[in-house]
Computed example of a mutant assay.
Amino acid sequence: MKVAIGGPLKVAFRPWVEGLENIPDEGAAILASNHLSFSDSFFLPAILDRKVTFIAKAEYFTTPGVKGRLTAAFFKGVGQLPVDRSGARGAGEAAIKSGIEVLERGELFGIYPEGTRSPDGRLYRGKPGGLARVALATGAPVIPVAMIDTEKIQPPGKVMPKLMRPGIRIGKPLDFSRYQGMEHDRFVLRAVTDEVMYEIMKLSGQEYVDMYATAAKRQIADAAKAAKDAEKAEKKQV
């Protein structure tokens, strides 16, 4: 399935890549990437010879019917791993557990430290609970990755992608072994996450925003709602 999907993606979009030599030929490693588009999880695996596993909502794998089965087969084929978001702590703990299992098998684990797609193309503050905890619990190196222009290919809400060349920059592996055994220290988790985000920022050239993307999305939604309410009120006065 990876060959069947990856081949056409490379032919159709011709992604350019820098730093491919930073991906190890074998052994565990964490690929920490910015997140601009739904398609990020497809372009990165497409250009790698090794399998990389990302996490995805369990709903993608459990939807009934023919469409649901096809969707599940597609996500499994491109290396997506279902994560059940139910339970007391939800997807966070499930993602950490899944990531550790992938790395303990000596494989590549992909993660988006921002936790969600950027709402406006800028780089947002990384969440320390996932990436840093997995890295410190396993000792796996963290490889920063920058996706370039993928938000222009498939903006949020758009189903059909635009044919254009995205870019992928892969940085040098980061070693956090000096913090081994400190995965429950919140200051260490913050320091590790910030170091990774700084490297992603240098690779991507994105403007950095020191707030979480989820908070930014709420602000944008609230502003849009306020503007819509103001427009309605103005029409009533006319």
Rank of each mutant, 00 (worst) to 15 (best):
L174I: 10
F75P: 05
I168E: 11
P128R: 09
K10W: 06
A56D: 05
L189W: 01
A28R: 11
G77T: 04
F74R: 01
G126N: 07
A95R: 01
A28I: 03
I5H: 01
Y198I: 11
T62C: 06
G110V: 10
P24E: 11
R105E: 15
R117H: 10
A137F: 04
Y124Q: 09
A135N: 06
L44M: 13
K228A: 15
A29P: 13
G87F: 04
T193R: 12
E107P: 13
V192L: 04
M197V: 03
R186M: 15
D222I: 00
D149F: 10
V192H: 01
P155A: 11
L108S: 11
L189H: 02
L123G: 02
S98V: 14
Q80M: 09
P24H: 00
D25W: 04
A73Q: 03
P144K: 00
D49V: 01
A230H: 06
R105Q: 15
W16N: 05
I200L: 02
I30C: 09
V145C: 06
G205R: 09
L203K: 12
G157I: 03
K51P: 06
K225T: 06
A226P: 05
K236H: 11
L70M: 14
R117S: 12
T193N: 02
S177Q: 14
H35N: 02
R122F: 03
K225G: 07
K10Q: 14
A221C: 02
A226Y: 05
P15G: 14
